[in-house]
Design a protein around this nucleic acid. Sequence first.
DNA 1: CGATCACTTGAACGATCGATCAGAAAACTA
DNA 2: TAGTTTTCTGATCGATCGTTCAAGTGATCG
Lengths: 198, 198
Amino acid sequence: MTPARGRPREFDTEAALDAAMMVFWEHGYEATGVAQLCEAMGIAKQSMYDWVGDKRGLYLLAVERYYQERICGLGKMLSLEGSPIGNLWHCLHAMADYAKAPDCIGCLVTNAQSEFGTTDEELAKLTARVEAYIVDAFAGVLERAKAAHEIGAGIDCRAMGSALAVVRNGLMVAGRAGQSVESIDQTIAMIDTMLKVK
Amino acid sequence: MTPARGRPREFDTEAALDAAMMVFWEHGYEATGVAQLCEAMGIAKQSMYDWVGDKRGLYLLAVERYYQERICGLGKMLSLEGSPIGNLWHCLHAMADYAKAPDCIGCLVTNAQSEFGTTDEELAKLTARVEAYIVDAFAGVLERAKAAHEIGAGIDCRAMGSALAVVRNGLMVAGRAGQSVESIDQTIAMIDTMLKVK
DNA sequence: CGATCACTTGAACGATCGATCAGAAAACTA
DNA sequence: TAGTTTTCTGATCGATCGTTCAAGTGATCG
């Protein structure tokens, strides 16, 4: 811990990051202006530049925070005590409910993947890490469900986990695009059928 | 057909639109500049403004063209003579191969949905129309497969079609983000399992 | 207390954005 | 051919972009 020197920062960095995250989440990277971000964070431009360097630095931190706060929350939900398949169901239906909401704006990470693809190497590494986490989370809960004989022994948990992660991206895009409630429900129903196989 | 009056246009509008479509497809709307578009199209700025009004007008035309040229091609592929399930398989594997390619840039419509959500009403209507076409295409081939007893009678074709459309979005995001070959293959494998149910 | 360092503010930077103006050039109609 | 209409080119517009400069403010340390 380095000793504090000079005037301490006045604003709450976590709160500011949350505010920036929301703006990026809703509008994407390119369509968001620095002035817009600073207004949402309640700080002046220079404070932002002193803090995170530039707009891209703030975006990377926002995506990282989204990962830690939102995505990891999804992982936690899947790791709760009790029935693994119950946890998975709860998680899937939470995702579906979110995607069906009229004000759904999708997933920040999915949006980032769609906006940047692989053009920004550092961002791509970050989103790949998030994606891997999601795959692991799904695969893990499936493993536990299999161990508890809640799903068929023939299911390839890692494969299914990967597929669920891909489907999640599809659901997030569908939710952001305001796609029909039926499409989302029926996607969940398809997963339901899948889990009952073998 | 209105009679031609004044100096005829020198450039090929379809070729220009194709060029613009490619640029939008790769970089998205906001990250693409008018100068960049005009250079790719091989015309001057004013020609573009005279032709389509503004950048957004060009984008809408590009998305529409993507729909007519690429998405409808997918529909045609599903409606070929011969085995419906074979057509579906061919289509799914073509999608997977595309998503697995290192230079995959996803789907322009999926990208548009992710970038704009529902904020641009006219664009949202257009992407919704595309999405409906895709659902119909998948549902249609499933209906024909069911009629030919290639899939189980218990499958809800419309529901399954909707789900496939959502999964397609997920695959396109995964492809653009350079996600692992395994994720994509396993998503296809999941659909495979689905189709063998009942 | 005085020195120092970091944070804050507001003005201002050059660059680039999408869009437009003015005028020359060209091909149609009559 | 004369007149009309549109396209084309190149310069240029005001606005906004992300970023930085300059000065003032305030907390900490010797």
